[in-house]
Design a protein around this nucleic acid. Structure first.
Lengths: 350, 350
DNA sequence: CCCAAGTGATAATAGGTATTATCACCGCGC
DNA sequence: GCGCGGTGATAATACCTATTATCACTTGGG
């Protein structure tokens, strides 16, 4: 064995076949035209040489030569493959993998990004971002500056989850939480509820605003009056207090984890769910239940969101940046209501 | 294909700082010596220019120039992120992600590899394998030719799971199933078992051989006599028949899925588990139970396996290929027995 | 016979970074 | 005046592929 087997290159193939490196490249890429012509005999000879060797094109060189590489980046602001995040990321990653397989792309996970303030940093000195043709961004709350810079640099990317940056038009695929939230509010009204508590976190993400917007609208129109309760550190006692204070017959929680915390706190306070008070989550509820009851909330098509995001990214990659303004780069998918068993007609307590 | 978005390059920085591209490179890499010297003033000026711009090194160019890229490949012979494979791949991927984060590497998933005969192909015309500094191989049964070719080409890689190719010395990190299997056999003997059935698949992977080897050894030494039953297409009826035929007081299944199938078939046949017959799996049993009972089997440190694999890979990448023979590249980790509740003393039926 | 068009293939170059070899200049001692 | 070591920086090159421009040679037409 030779001490250092360098990779077999086009030049090597060329030497074997007795042609130039250019010719090898032309054969590999099936180039032919008035400018460049290669007779079948030569073509065959080169192909033979390639076949007998173990030649594979060096992707770095391809990339440097300006070609796309069929590599799409995946950036997550938190670890993506940990057991805890699997609940959220799992369906998304699955959708991404399937779509990537479909279109023949490899996936580059930027696991190396240095962590600052508990979040990964997209841009840093040695980022391999540019090795990818484009990038999918995942995460509950993204960095607005990152998004702006990506837009400015005309780097193809798609955010998963709705964004509404004012500084730049960010491509995204998300879920239509406005319609879903609205649907759940109407359902509650149908069941006779008029007074509710909205338990939410302090965060200010676009999707959080979407939900809150509908809550506020319902309150202002008098359809269903909500008392907002912000919780920090998963301390939902204030929410329970608000219910105990009377009046409210239903609790809406911003997400399912919060709903579970509330359910636990209610049980501890001796408040019977759902007979004394109903509960619904404004998030995905599949796989979650409250004391054996199916939690009322949403079913969100996350695999589909991921797949659409990847398709959109592919489209961006394939389109010259100056034509992007003509594309429809912001997409919301419909979810469905899970009526569940924790949102019941008001007055069931009797 | 989109036209190359013009990025900030070293040449651009050089123009701004009024120096040459070489100098910029030197500053970036902190090069200094008798050969090349850069006074603090110039150094500072260049650093300023870099700071003010959005320069990031082009990974393709770095790679082409022969440097490490801090990118490690992950190749799985089946889809890695699907819900079904999460049971097996999840802990491994988690370990890999954590270790990659630790050493500052990005992960490239070869999701594009064309599928032939239901398995992905590692080597193909446009494989991006070489973009990675090295590669982790995952999968129940790998392709021997792939492994040989990787060794021949001196490409740094580590297989997860023990390998014993005769044609090449394959680096791997696996779990010591020999000791584990031996432990479970001794346990069964302690509990009075003398006659068993070994339910296994047709596969011929090294780890399958490891287990079978111990089964055969126990049979030949008379410690515990096993009747082997090979099953295909998850049809375990033959195994049940072998038990019903009498004699056997315990069933060992090659893996946990098989064990679950057997448990189901036993129940259907009206054979009481574990009173009439004991059952143990020669695989990871965490998260699996049989009718509320903890399944007897192994607990395997899969996160740790993955982490060790990645560390080993890092070591290979950092070591010149001609020094590899001096490295210890084959590592087996210890698992622990899960005594469980399905392997019980013989004669519990009375 | 000579120009034009056609044919087959190659030299030259771009792309961005890292390294090696080289260069220009200055001050100093003799 | 001249070599000489030291200093600061750069030109040249390699890495590998894809593309553009170019070249050598042939053939047909006038």
């Amino acid at each position: 064995m030779s001490p250092k087997t360098r990779n077999v290159t086009q030049k090597e193939i060329a030497r074997i076949a007795g042609v130039s490196q250019t010719t090898v490249s032309m054969v590999l890429n099936d180039r032919d035209g008035s400018n460049v012509r290669i007779p079948a005999a030569t073509r065959e000879r080169v192909k033979q040489a390639i076949e007998q060797s173990t030649y594979v094109a060096d992707p770095a060189a391809r990339r440097l030569a300006g070609l796309d590489n069929q590599i799409l980046g995946v950036f997550t602001y938190e670890p993506a493959l940990s057991p805890e995040s699997m609940d959220f990321y799992g369906p998304l990653l699955n959708g991404i993998e399937r779509a990537a397989e479909e279109v023949g792309c490899d996936l580059l996970f930027f696991t190396s990004s240095p962590v600052e303030d508990g979040r990964r940093t997209l841009f840093h000195r040695k980022t391999r971002l540019r090795l990818a043709d484009g990038c999918i961004l995942l995460g509950q709350d993204m960095d607005g500056d990152d998004l702006k810079r990506l837009v400015d640099e005309r780097f193809p990317f798609v955010a998963v989850g709705r964004r509404d940056e004012t500084t730049a038009r960010v491509p995204y695929v998300g879920i239509d939480y406005v319609t879903l939230t609205d649907g759940l509010i109407r359902r509650a009204v149908e069941l006779g509820h008029r007074e509710g508590v909205y338990v939410h976190r302090d965060g200010d993400s676009p999707t959080a605003r979407d939900r809150r917007g509908q809550i506020v609208a319902a309150t202002e129109s008098g359809t269903l009056h909500f008392t907002p309760v912000a919780v920090a550190d998963d301390d939902v006692s204030a929410a329970v207090a608000a219910v105990a204070a009377g009046g409210a017959t239903v609790i809406f929680a911003e997400d399912t984890f919060l709903a579970e915390d509330v359910a636990f706190a209610l049980a501890a306070a001796g408040i019977d769910l759902p007979r004394s008070v109903s509960l619904a989550s404004l998030g995905e509820v599949r796989g979650h239940s409250i004391g054996g009851r199916v939690l009322t909330g949403f079913q969100t098509p996350r695999q589909q969101v991921a797949a659409e995001a990847l398709n959109l990214l592919q489209k961006l990659v394939a389109t010259p940046a100056d034509e992007w303004p003509g594309l429809d780069t912001q997409l919301l998918l419909d979810g469905t209501l899970e009526l569940g068993e924790t949102l019941v007609p008001v007055g069931s307590a009797s």
